[in-house]
Nucleic acid binder design. Structure first.
Lengths: 262, 262
DNA sequence: AAGTGGTCTAGACCACTCT
DNA sequence: GAGTGGTCTAGACCACTTT
């Protein structure tokens, strides 16, 4: 019964713009559960009829909701309440040595355990001069080169995360870090074999709207922000040995950290 | 020299909608540094003139940029490239016992060290039945009550964070946790005095667009997402003793965590 | 073919800021 | 008062989806 939804009338005495009042009504219907995930919002024509306003006014209201991430428009089909993908939880012990299957392997195991179908694509390995922020974190000079390992993670075909690992050339050379398959235990195992005992990681997390390329790579709906997480791995002597720059769909992740009270 | 900016012409052979092409041009000008933070974007009238399109088309383009968080419109003044507030860094050792000045005190000290003017307002203390997600985290039954301590943090008068701490009534009663000034060391000191030795914290972090109330409380510009961080404090025997639910302007924070490699 | 959203035009009037 | 953005109208034509 897509038509059972009853929306209030406009308040002509209100200072609030008409398009905002309309957006408020629909937002409230979603918050109250009168419209649920996947439900169709009344069509533009129906809303014009109900409120007696021009189409552009209705569209403006619907656009507000879309940029809030509450709805998605599907051309030729209608406007729908956004359904949220299952959230993937990243625990802070995911790099403890006892689960040291890095990157791809860990992602595949976790996703299958959670009943999803994982995949990894866009794998690319380049020797490059790193971006300045990366070079700083790796304590590299302006002309030092690194190996950049890029990939994209998907769950049930839906991209959820892109990541680029940067490893100083000095460490990566003559190891499987330079090959698409970095071998058992991933690049961290290769780094340790090279004599750098991993000691700790530092993760810096920002929350922002995606850039255009990121929105495309992650197939993000309008109004979905991203986590931008930069992880630096340090050896026991304090040397930074790897930086991983990842962008994650805000929709798809909960990050979880355990902190000692000490 | 507001007029020194030269924008490309439209590509009539492109499939890309005119308003998107215009948004792309302005976005590129920002990304390339031709327009910097605080600079004025050409007025709607100037853009109409330059591109030879209707005003609504220009407005549509500008709205895209605004919902990406790249620009802000100021009524009667113009559209400006967003300037980003100084970022506040939250390190993962901020609750280590050695800096155990909690909440307000820690915020004030850190902000002053960074050269900002901190303030805290909207302090409210209530005895309530907690939301279900909070009750679950505190292992409470459906009828248990808690003390909810709400406040809002500001830097230079700009709100950056709202927080509500929930402490089970059983723990809070007969302590300064029920008073606006919870005393030296904050509520964690009071909880320990009551015999619960704090052992560790768990922080769950999401990234999403703000609700209406949150956008208002944090005076968020359109297109700014928030961190939603829920921290649970555990005593040595595993008992959860406090949950703090905080919403932070994504603009104003970098969260930083250190993880042992173990 | 009918219904849906996507893009665009060409106006109108209003509210705010600056000089 | 001139310039700016904010709201709203009443159309037009297009592209996609469903029946």
């Amino acid at each position: 019964m897509a038509t059972s939804l009853t929306l209030p009338d406009l308040d002509p005495t209100s200072d609030r713009a008409v398009f905002r009042q309309i957006a408020d009504h629909i937002r409230q219907a979603i918050e109250r559960g009168q419209l649920r995930e996947g439900d169709k919002v009344p069509s533009e024509a129906q809303l014009m009829q109900h409120y007696g306003v021009a189409r552009m006014t209705i569209r403006h209201a619907l656009q507000v909701l879309q940029s809030e991430g509450l709805t998605v428009a599907e051309h030729g089909r209608g406007v729908f309440v956004r359904s949220h993908p299952p959230m993937r939880r990243l625990a802070s012990d995911r790099f403890a040595r006892r689960h040291r299957e890095q990157g791809k392997a860990a992602f595949i195991a976790e996703t299958e355990d959670a009943g999803g179908k994982p995949s990894v694509d866009s794998i690319k390995i380049d020797e490059v001069k790193p971006p300045v922020e990366i070079a700083e974190r790796l304590s590299l000079g302006p002309n030092d080169r690194v190996i950049a390992r890029s990939r994209r993670y998907l769950i049930n075909g839906q991209p959820v995360e892109t990541a680029i690992s940067y490893v100083p050339m000095e460490i990566a050379k003559d190891t499987k870090i330079m090959e698409p398959d970095s071998g058992p235990g991933g690049i961290y195992a290769r780094i340790e074999e090279k004599g750098y005992r991993l000691d700790h990681f530092v993760e810096d997390i920002k929350c922002r709207m995606p850039l255009r390329d990121e929105a495309r790579a992650l197939k993000l709906a309008p109004g979905v922000p991203v986590f931008h997480l930069v992880r630096t791995a340090y050896a026991a002597d304090g040397t930074p040995v790897e930086v991983c720059d990842t962008v994650m769909s805000g929709d798809a992740y909960v990050l979880s950290y355990e902190l000692p009270a000490r």
